[in-house]
Design a protein around this nucleic acid. Structure first.
Length: 275
DNA sequence: ACGAGCGCCTGTCGGC
DNA sequence: TGCCGACAGGCGCTCG
């Protein structure tokens, strides 16, 4: 499910609260329930429960596609992977199908990690250094200038789509926002990264930022049965638009496979140069 | 350094 | 209707 905009939406909902649930800031943890063992990456279940007990949520944030929940003495880190979701509901309400891990708070509310495909992971750590040290920059980092981005692209010789999907290169993009960003930048998904000019790099960076901002503005994208509440799927220009006319030129959008991922693009607006 | 293939999982959809 | 393969918003691993 989630790429940066969806994770950002979920994070800010937890932090600010919603119409149906309070903010988690200030809530104290009574206990944890682990319903699927492999969801907990570290530490072991006993240590996890013992450490969490009695800790209070101080802050909630996001780094790349990770959600960070700062507690009194530890940090709870959550990655939703493909199908994960976080829900805040009354402790008395029945568990949902595919709930994998839950936290009960003293306020009578519960945070549940629901994850159909069981790919999601939860860590409880002292600090996030080990988890985050190899991540690329956030796309909206002001230090990421067009010149710097151009340098990063030039030092690699890789098809641009798999490179953008690589979280060690740039953090936050997934399949949807990569396809949409490349379309906006008029770049073919197989274009080799070291052939981009400074102008290409600047346009790509601007396209990534605009696409992510639009995604966040629309609370992310809701597709299939997984994530609900977002509207960005109504703004897709190429993703899942196979055969539909390109919004710019009218030629049919094509679908191929790049890096084992479904890839949507306009062959006319995104011609392949320097593959 | 790079890309391909696969594993991890459950659910949905289209074709027959 | 039922079965079966393809596919799905992610990512870490091995291999060549």
């Amino acid at each position: 499910m989630p790429e940066l905009p969806e994770v950002e939406t979920i994070t800010s909902n937890l932090k600010r609260g919603t119409a149906g649930a309070p903010s988690l800031i200030g809530q104290t943890i009574l206990g944890a329930h682990i319903l699927w063992q492999k969801t907990l990456a570290e530490p072991d279940p006993e240590t996890f429960q013992a450490i969490l007990q009695g800790q209070t949520i101080q802050n909630i944030g996001r780094r790349a596609k990770y959600i960070t929940i700062n507690l009194t003495e530890s940090i709870l880190v959550i990655h939703l992977r493909m199908s994960g979701d976080l829900r805040v509901e009354p402790t008395q309400s029945p568990l949902n199908k595919h709930d994998r891990l839950t936290l009960d708070f003293d306020s009578g509310w519960r945070l549940s990690f629901n994850d159909t495909r069981k790919f999601g992971r939860v860590w409880l750590v002292r600090d996030t250094q080990n988890l985050f040290s190899s991540l690329g920059p956030e796309p909206d980092d002001p230090a990421l200038t067009p010149e710097r981005f151009h340098e990063m692209l030039k030092t690699r010789s890789r098809a641009i789509k798999p490179l953008l999907l690589d979280q060690h290169f740039l953090a936050g993009l997934g399949n949807i926002y990569t396809d949409e960003s490349l379309f906006r930048a008029n770049l073919h998904p197989l274009r080799s990264s070291d052939t981009l000019t400074l102008q290409d790099a600047a346009k790509l960076l601007e396209s990534i930022r605009a696409t992510l901002a639009l995604g966040i503005q629309n609370n992310g994208a809701s597709i299939d049965w997984v994530y609900r509440g977002g509207d960005f799927q109504n703004h897709f220009q190429v993703y899942q638009q196979t055969g539909s006319p390109c919004p710019t030129c009218g030629q049919p959008i094509q679908k191929t496979t790049v890096a084992q991922r479904g890839t949507h693009f306009c062959p006319h607006c995104q011609p392949l140069k320097g593959a």
